[in-house]
Design a binder for these strands. Structure first.
Lengths: 141, 141
DNA sequence: TATTGTTATACTCTATAACTATA
DNA sequence: TATAGTTATAGAGTATAACAATA
């Protein structure tokens, strides 16, 4: 399991590395492209990233000219982190295709049916579970 | 994938934590119990752990009285790290069962057939792959 | 008072370099 | 000269605490 995940992570990291990105950057760019401009808190909490870490992630993306920090006029404490046109173009035409390629490479040992099956099993493993930590009364010493 | 692995790791770590152990410790203890006394280098390289890290892993296990450092008489540079009787008893009767319990808990969403299927798919994902990095000539820009 | 973003700081994990003793 | 073990050190990566601006 962990070995497969290590390969998975390394393949995805290698896919975005030529663009000077980490997989975290891809996640953030995709979230903005999909959901629209968001605050750093939203971007952080949605993806289980610490908000202080998100500062440097956005710093890096801004330095690359891929996102821009605009203030949210409705709540001036928040930013509205949005994609620049360059950021959107790079994500859609270069980075996302590279990620899809990498995922395809990772799943190369599987047939299309097996890919679907594997995905379903993984999904159930994560989400089809009794409320975690709720039945700890029955734990063994 | 990574989310499932995070759960996997956390469940296994929680299983050995009551014994004051980390999953790395379990791996080392099991390796010694299975293969017999080994040098720190063997223990390290076999499981992709750095040899300097292995020093502190063995330090911790020795402090807990679970392993002992004996010199290898055939090559006095090497240790022969062996289990103490306490270490073997704890591993076999407490830690290993806790690990099996944890694994069972992790795979709870699956039926027996699905567990076997999932294992086979994972195995193929890791090992049924073209020699990694060999066909990079065909990589895209 | 609480929240957003920021900075400085600390902590964990791991890797590198240099040393010793042995081969 | 090379290897096993050790130590000190440095580098990621991440988390905690405290602060300013805003709500």
């Amino acid at each position: 399991m962990s070995k497969a995940n290590d390969m998975f992570v390394q393949i995805l990291e290698s896919a975005v590395e030529p663009f000077g990105l980490r997989s975290k950057d891809f996640i953030v760019l995709t979230a903005i492209d999909t959901m629209g401009p968001q605050s750093q808190q939203q971007l952080a909490s949605t993806h289980g990233i610490d908000r202080t870490t998100m500062v440097s992630v956005v710093d890096g993306l801004e330095r690359l000219g891929l996102v821009q920090r605009a203030r949210n006029p409705d709540d001036r404490r928040k930013y509205a982190i949005g994609l620049t046109s360059e950021g959107q173009a790079l994500l859609r035409h270069k980075v996302a295709p590279a990620m899809l390629d990498a995922l395809d490479n990772f799943l190369a040992p599987f047939s299309p049916d097996e890919r679907e099956l594997f995905n379903k099993l993984l999904w159930r493993l994560v989400y089809e579970r009794d409320s975690p930590g709720e039945d700890e009364a029955g734990e063994r010493a």
